[in-house]
Structure formats: C-alpha cells, structure tokens
C-alpha cells in the first residue's frame, strides 16, 4: 500500500518536474534577447521547413475534408429539402473545429515529429553540446527559431486549410450535386460571423501551434540521445501533441461557444 502510494507520489513529482523543466526551457528560448541580424535567416529557414514543406499535406487534406463534409452534409440535408444550407454547415464546421484541429494533428505528425527527430539527432551526435562548447546557446540558436516558426506557420496553415476546404466543398456541392451557388455562398456569409467564428478559430490555431511546437522541441531536446530514445521521443511528440490538441479543443470550445 505504502509502496504504491510512494510510486504515485514519485510519478506525480516526476511529471511536475518535467513540466517545470519544459516551462523554464521554453521561457529561456523565447526571452533570450536574440540578435535579429543573425536570428532572421535561421528563422526563415525553419519557417520554410515546418511551414512551406507542410503545405502539400495540408492542402490535400483540406480539399478532401471539404469534399467529404459537403457530400455527407448534402445527403442528410437533402432529405429536409435544405441542401442550400450545406455552405453554412461546411464553413462553420471547418472554421470553428476541423480547420484548427485537423491541421494541428497533421502538423504534429508532419512537422512536430521531424522537429523532435532533428533536435534529438543533433543531441545524439553531440552537435548541441558542441554549440555550447563554442559559447553559443543552443536554446537561442536551435530551439528558438524552430519554436517561433511553429507558432507562426501553423495559424497560417489553418487559414489555408480552411480556404481549400471550402473550395473542395463548393466543388462537390455546387459543381457536382447541383446546389445553387448563390444560396451556397449567401447562406455561408449570413451565418458565419467574423469575430465569433473566424477569430475564435484563429485563436484556437494559435493555442494549438504553441502546444504542438512546444511539445515537439522539448521532446527532442529532452530525449535520451540513442536511436531508441529518439524513436520514443518522436512517438511521444505525436501522441502528446494529439492528446493536447484534442483536450485543449474541448476546453477552448467550452469557453468560446458554451453558454453558461
């Protein structure tokens, strides 16, 4: 009994210790005063790696999700004769929920895992230590540009995802299933509010970007520098990020749209 209690206590302390360490880690990476002239090229390189290179998967997924939503929505709504509302359904579900959440999940799988593996491998090959020994803080040089690139790239990817999704839905509903395009667009415009829908979606995407990038770089930096350790860290990044995104999504939705 005592042994079990002790075990629970120890693992609790362990979790708190990791949380504390990762908090200090992120604060030290972000609040160190960077030299803009040197930091900018690093940041742009990372923005390309995590942002631009994630574009294909985001665009393709956005297109298919928009198409599926439209198809599913149409088959249900047509029974009630309200298939014009498919535009409204499409826009609201994409902007409020699916855009931020699916993008964050894809981002964790595509960019998060590669950030973790890259940093983990840099650690395993002593590149991180050798930066330290050259008198260069790896938190500023390696971590900060990757974190910032994640923060900035993901909300932009969410916007692209939403736009492509709406376009995919339009293709299916209007061009294929024959919904009148005037009502498709006007229903969408009338029901979607810029602040309560679009901006809340953007806020969600910023929160998710923070969570996913943070988890990814921390897992890489904190990984055990062996091939097994890096493998485990990469898995952890995807699992923790996905759970964090889904959990945070519920909390944010409750705060934003729950009337209580």
């Amino acid at each position: 009994m005592i042994a079990r209690l002790r075990m629970i206590g120890r693992s609790g302390l362990n979790v708190l210790q990791i949380l504390g360490r990762s908090g200090v880690f992120v604060a030290m990476s972000l609040f160190g005063v960077p030299n803009l002239r040197r930091a900018l090229p690093l940041f742009i390189k990372q923005l390309y790696a995590v942002g631009v290179l994630s574009l294909p998967i985001i665009v393709v997924s956005g297109l298919f999700i928009g198409m599926v939503l439209s198809l599913q929505g149409y088959t249900i709504l047509v029974d009630y004769g309200s298939e014009q509302a498919v535009g409204q359904m499409l826009a609201l579900s994409l902007v409020r929920e699916l855009g931020p959440v699916v993008t964050a999940l894809l981002f964790a799988g595509r960019a998060g895992s590669s950030l973790t593996a890259e940093i983990g491998l840099m650690k395993a090959t002593e590149q991180i230590t050798s930066l330290e020994m050259l008198g260069i803080d790896p938190l500023r040089y390696v971590i900060a540009p990757r974190l910032l690139a994640g923060f900035i790239a993901m909300p932009l990817l969410v916007m692209i995802f939403n736009v492509v999704g709406v376009w995919g839905g339009y293709l299916v509903a209007v061009d294929w299933l024959g919904v009148y395009d005037g009502s498709f667009w006007s229903n969408m415009q009338n029901s979607t509010d810029f602040y309560s829908d679009v901006m809340n979606g953007v806020i969600k995407s910023i929160v998710f970007a923070f969570a996913v990038s943070w988890i990814a770089v921390f897992q890489g930096y904190d990984s055990v520098p062996t091939s097994e350790g890096i493998g485990r860290a990469t898995t952890k990044t995807v699992v923790y990020s996905s759970l964090a995104v889904l959990g945070l999504d519920f909390i944010l939705t409750a705060v934003m749209f729950g009337d209580f």
Partner: peptide
C-alpha cells in the same frame, strides 16, 4: 552564471569523439 559560463567557454575548445560537425 549561464552568461559567464558561455563567456568562459570561448576561451576553451573541446574536440568530441564524433567530431560533432554541423551536418
């Protein structure tokens, strides 16, 4: 302190077993 440590390290070099070149 962390800053003093980084300052001191500029006066010392370390050659790692793996070389640790930036790949």
């Amino acid at each position: 302190t962390r800053n003093e440590l980084y300052e001191m390290r500029r006066t010392m070099g370390m050659l790692f077993q793996s070389g640790a070149l930036f790949t």
